[in-house]
Structure formats: C-alpha cells, structure tokens
Write a protein that binds this DNA or RNA. Structure first.
Lengths: 193, 193, 193, 193
DNA sequence: ATCTAATCGAGACGGTACGTCGAGTCTTCCC
DNA sequence: GGGAAGACTCGACGTACCGTCTCGATTAGAT
C-alpha cells in the first residue's frame, strides 16, 4: 500500500543522470549533482537504485532501448554493415561517453558488470546471433558464432576505450572486409576447388 | 645541495601499488593504502607522481617492461600465435586486474589515457607492426596493418573488460583462425583464380 | 461531515510516544518510531499535533493529570513534605525521563516551552500556592510565594537535570529543613525577643 | 610526529560555535554551519571532538574559564551575594543560551552530561564549597554543604530553563534572604535561648 | 441505501544534517 | 633538502528523520 512511486521523478532522475554525464563527464556524475538537477532528493535515488552506476545503466538502457534492431535486408554482409555502422554512430554520439563510464565502473563493481551484461551486452549479442544464423550456410564451416560476434564488436569497443585511433565508419568497413575475406593471401595451392 | 631521490622509497611505493591493486581491487587502491603499505608518506607519492593512476601505470610498466617481445619463428602464423598466447596468459594473471583498473581510470582521466597509450599500447603495437611487416607479402593485398592489429588485440581486451565469456587460449586460437581465413565461405564463382 | 477522529488511534499514539521515550530515551523519539509502534501513519500524527514534542507533552499531561494534588493535612510542614515526596517519586520513576526530554525540547522550541508551562508548571504552582496560602500567617513576613515555590521545586528539577547527586527523599528532607530554618546560625544578639 | 594540531583552526572552530549558537539559537548549531563559519572542514571538527555538543562545551568553558571566581570580602553573605549576582548576569547574557543548549543536549547524551559536570558544574561547586567553608561556624549546625549549594544555584538554573518568571537580581536577592532566614516565622516558644 | 467527505495506514517525496572517507596539500620534525 | 607522520580543506558518500504528499481503503453523517 502507500503512495505509489512517482514516475515523473524517476524520469527526471534518469534524464538528469545522462545530462550530467554528457555535460560534465563521468567524474562529474555525483548523486548530489543528479539529485539537484532532477529536483529530487538523494534519498529518492537511493530508495530505488543501489548506486549511481545503476541509475546511469538504467538511463542508458532506456535511452537506447529501441535503437539498433538487427536489420534484415536479405543479405548477410549488408545486415552486418548496417548494424555495425549504427553502433559506430551510437558510440560516437554523446552516448559514447556513457558507455565509457559504465564500462569503467564495471571493472571494479561486479553488480554493474552483471547489469551491463544482462541489460545491454547479452541481449544485443542474442539479437545479432539470431540475425546472423539465418545465413548460416554462407558462413565458412567451423566458424563459432560467439567468436564471430566478438570479432565484430570488440574492435569498436576497443577504439572507444583505448582511443589510439578514431572510431570511424571507414575503420569499421575495413575491419569487416578483413573479417570477411581473412587476412591471409591464399597461395594457389591451398585454394578451394 | 640537497638530498637525492630515495630510490628505495620509490621501489616500495611501486611494489605496494601493485600489491594493493591485486589484493583489494581497483577501488581499494587509495593513496593512503599505498603509503601505509610502502611505509611512505602521501607527500612523497605526490612529489613524484601527479596522482595514484600514474603510480599504478609506472608500476605496471616496470612489471611488464621486458615481457612479450614479438617473437621471430620465421612463420607469420606462429609469431602471431605465440604473441597472442603470451598476452592471453598475461591478462589472465594477477596483472589482468591492473589492466582493468588502469583502463577504467583512463576513461575519465585523459592523462592516464595518454600515459597508458604512450607507455604500453603504442610501443606494443609498434613492436607487433614491425614483426608482422616482415611477412607483408603473405598478407592479402589491401589489409591495413592498424586494422589488423586491432583485429588481433581487441577481442582479448574485450573479453577482459566485458567478461561475457572467458578469455582462453582456445578462444584466441579460434579468433586467429577466423581472422586468418575469413568468415565467409567462398562460393565457387568468387574464388581467386 | 466525514469520518470522525479515531480516538483509538489517538490513544495508541500517545501511549506509544511515552513508551518510546522511556525505552529509547529522547533521541529515540522519532515520529517514525511513534507511528510504527502505534500502527499509525505519520500523517495522522501531524494532522493532530504540530510536532512530536506536542505529542509527548499531551501524553505526559494525560499520564500525570490526576497525580499530585496538593495535600491538606492541616499542617504546613506536612503538606509540603508530602507534596515534595510525591514529586521526588514521580521524577525518579520512568516519567522522569519524559520530563527531562520535554524540558530539553523546550530549550530550543518556544511552543514546547509555552505548552510545558501552561499545561504542567503553572497549574502545579497555582495549586501549591493555594495550598500554602492557607498557612500564610505561619510564614515569616516578607516571604514571596513565587520565590518560595522556586526554592521548593528548583532543587528537584536541578538534580534531575544536572545529575551531580541523586535525587533522594533524604535530600528533599534536608532541603526542606534548610528552607524551614534558614542557613544562618543566629547569634544571640539578633534573636527575636 | 607529523604535523601538529592547528591551534588557530581550533580557536576558529570554538569561536564559530559560540557565534552560531548566539545568532541562530541551539537548533541552528550544525557541524556544517560551524565548519563553514570557521573556514574549517567537518573532518577537522570530528577529528578532535566527538560531536558538536563537545565543541560547544569546550567553547563555553574557554569563554567563561576565568569568570566567576568565588569572592572573598570577609563576609559570608556578601561573598554569596556577589557570586550569585555574577552568575545571574552570566546566565542573562548571550552565554545563557549556550547553557540552555548544553543542558538540553546533556539530557539525552551522557557524554555531554558528564563533560558538563566535570568541566563546569563540579569545579564551580568545589570553588564555592571552599569559599563557604571558611565561614563554617556562622552556619546553622546540621546544614549540609551540598544541599546548601543546590539551594543557592538550583533556582537560577530553574528560572533559566523553565522560564516561568524572569531571572533577575531582585529574585536572587529574595531567594538569598529566604535561605538566610528560613521561611518559617518562629513562634516565641521555639526560639533559641 | 447510497453518496460524500474526512479519516485512516502506508509509504514515497524534497529536504537538511549527519558522520565518514579519500584526494591532494601543507607543516613539523628527523636524518 | 628529502622523507615519514599526520593534520588540513574540500567534496562526495550513503543514512536518518523531518514534515508533506498521495494513494486506496474505511467509516461516518447527509441525502
């Protein structure tokens, strides 16, 4: 019983957490800053989330919930390319900063790590796996789908997190081309017949 | 003239920072914890490093400085495999926790990010690039070396940081096989001649 | 119109406030603790009282309403002694803690101070004044009744609040004896004739 | 070893606590308010005092440390009168508010109670006892000094804390007169001879 | 026999202050 | 002049109560 949860306050808090993150960067995300911007009290935040990382995670999930459905063009290469392009654009938007922050938090907080996995990573991988499995016979036999998913997504996260080179569409295209054809120049003798 | 830097204290501080990191995890790494374990004072730490991330970074660099020279077996595939296997082992050791912590810190602290790049990432990539370039003619034309390096290393960092699947030697082998041959099963018509 | 006040809830709240006060001491008296113990809601408390001090005050008044009528033995000294003895016993009971709490609250909350005066202090003084005035001719001329009342009651509150010595019947008797006869040993020359 | 306590900061904190108390009243005395006004940090306050009451108590003690030495005019009645007058003036000054606050705090915090006793009450009583004992032969035999001290000081605290009547010099004089001579009009038969 | 409005328990809300912790700086004394 | 010890300011943490509010469920007196 009792008063029901104030959905408006919840929305204000989630919005505020992303705003603060994108304006001040991850170290600027404090519960007090979120509370002030959301015109909410810290107690309300802590009533519903265990820590600020959980707030940001939920905010991020809501913000990107409907984004990035795996496409269905009828062509494997196109499906993958569209998906990867969209993800590159997402990571290059202001959301990218949020991803960096949450992945950083996950390194030392296993609850964040688990939440990030179950809320974001695993659903996206499952969706992509289903999308790719439709073209299973086009894949070289022996290609493990989990490995393939890692090969597709890892370089994007890698450039986001390490920042040694920019995360561009061109890079993504080159990476996909490399994956598609392999790095090795087949010698005449080991070509399939 | 004045006393010179106490090298012994420096060593104690660097050792202590890795010990604390590996025992307590990243959030347990406080300057006070390092100082106490090293029997040093916080002032000494701040005199020689700008912040605790710099301490950890230097400690990490010293610890792994001589590790992982790019091998030279005479065979590209073997060189890469040996290098990747060694890196997998390193990330799975207690050092892996240090890498997670520093990469996390780099997400919100650009000085850490730059230091991590210049001290660890770029030198290792340069070494690997030189090692691979020796076999340039074995590579499929058009393969960009930067992209190839990303394709090799990114999946290892990815599994370290995201943790959706374990970072095993078998995984690394499957990933290299995928990269070597490509994901696509070439149809008879688009085979090279 | 509308539903009438729930007298049972009122009683539960008043009872609970004294229970909490006597069990947990004054800092344990929170509106939430009262509400929980009374199975009432905080809103109900605030609908009928301005703050928790008012609740405690009303509870205290109800609890001691009929206590301590000024006696009428026909002898001034006996009347006073009985009254003081009863008051000492009251302050040494669990009620004493309630008095301490309310007097403490009154120091920073003038509404509590005024309520405590009008509900407890002034009525009791008026009653005592009437009781003593019956024996006016036994009093030394020039004795102001207000001053006398202070001299009688102040030491009891003083020991209750300061706690430098226990508040015992013996102490009260010594105090009354001192007041009765005065502290000064009259020299032969200044004796009345 | 290490840096020594900053005596200036200590003084700023003690001063600030009294200032806040006298300007805002007891409920306005928060550690944060003291810290801000003293340009100190809350951590410094909590390093040296267990709570704000302890701060105020020490501040009060320092403020009144040298005040109120028991006088020595050679006449008991004069010594007492001077002492009581001075105490009345102290309680009626802005310090009175501090006394009210600390006595209130002592009702629910035994450490405050003990500190108030040992720092203020007991030393003052000891001093007064020594002062009065010099005139022991002037006192009526059987007068207990502890009881007499209570009779002298209790009415002052009582009017301060209860506030049913103002705490004036006139009141104090009447009280002392009452105590000196006793309340009872001796009948001819029970006069000393 | 309904309506209707005030009351109730429950508990979420915006606030304020708490007492703690760590960062990075500064001070004192020792070597 | 470097170093250990440790006090300092600052800012954020997560908690506890305050007094207000909104629910849905009673419970009268008025219709």
């Amino acid at each position: 019983m009792g008063r029901t949860r104030d959905e408006e306050a919840k929305a204000r808090i989630l919005d505020a957490s992303l705003e603060v993150l994108e304006e001040l960067g991850y170290p600027g995300v404090t519960t007090e800053a979120i509370a002030e911007r959301a015109s909410a009290s810290k107690a309300t935040i802590y009533r519903w989330w265990p820590n600020k990382e959980a707030v940001m995670l939920e905010a991020l999930r809501e913000a990107v919930a409907q984004e990035l459905p795996f496409p269905d063009t009828g062509t494997l290469k196109d499906d993958i390319r569209i998906q990867v392009h969209n993800f590159v654009k997402l990571l290059n938007s202001t959301r990218g900063r949020a991803f960096k922050g949450i992945i950083a938090a996950a390194q030392s907080d296993s609850t964040v790590a688990e939440a990030f996995l179950s809320i974001w990573v695993l659903p996206r991988r499952a969706s992509a796996r289903r999308g790719i499995e439709r073209y299973k016979k086009e894949l070289r036999p022996g290609v493990d789908l989990e490995v393939l998913l890692d090969a597709l997504y890892a370089p994007l996260y890698y450039r986001l997190l390490i920042g040694h080179q920019p995360l561009t569409i061109e890079f993504a295209d080159q990476m996909m081309e490399l994956l598609w054809k392999g790095l090795h120049a087949p010698s005449p003798t080991d070509q399939p017949r």
